[in-house]
């Protein structure tokens, strides 16, 4: 697995230091591939594996883990994940995620969102139109608290 250090370097250089307060919440991302195998007894087994070999049509599970390592609660906690262009969204693990199909300008449940086609016609949004997924926490995360968020996608 490659790590794109370049992106981090560019991002750090481009953005002026704004907040010097304790950046105490950690956020980690993991990608797994969901494999379905049929065992010798004919039962279907689903397993999550490291994505060593991934081809179009494979199901990916994205896991985001957060932890408040600081001594103060983190309020108004919002986690946003832009979807890689090659991944079609397949849903989040709970109903709390908000979705965007327009690059993060507007948000809502999939049934509330519309897509404007190239010819100007508008239609109801589908899962594969999702460009961003976001979780907005109503309650502050207490010091020491951790949790995880999850969504699924399929390689286009």
């Amino acid at each position: 697995m490659l790590r794109n250090l370049f992106l981090f370097a560019a991002a750090t250089a481009a953005v002026p230091a704004f907040a010097q307060a304790d950046p105490s919440v950690s956020l980690a991302s993991d990608v797994m591939v969901e494999r379905t195998t049929v065992g010798p007894d004919g039962r279907t087994q689903v397993s999550l594996e490291e994505p060593s070999t991934v081809v179009p049509g494979d199901k990916l599970v994205f896991v985001l883990r957060y932890r408040n390592n600081g001594r103060q609660p983190a309020a108004d906690f919002v986690v946003t994940n832009p979807l890689p262009a090659a991944v079609a969204f397949q849903g989040s693990n709970d109903g709390s995620a908000q979705l965007s199909v327009d690059g993060g300008r507007s948000w809502g449940a999939i049934g509330d969102l519309m897509v404007t086609e190239g010819d100007g016609t508008r239609r109801a949004a589908r899962m594969e139109d999702v460009t961003h997924v976001r979780w907005t926490f109503a309650q502050p995360i207490p010091a020491g608290e951790a949790g995880r968020l999850m969504f699924r996608g399929v390689v286009r």
Partner: peptide, 15 residues
């Protein structure tokens, strides 16, 4: 396929 999530939060008056 590169995936990066980001989070914002407030600690006191600081985002």
């Amino acid at each position: 396929i590169e995936n990066t999530a980001s989070a914002t939060y407030d600690v006191g008056p600081t985002q």
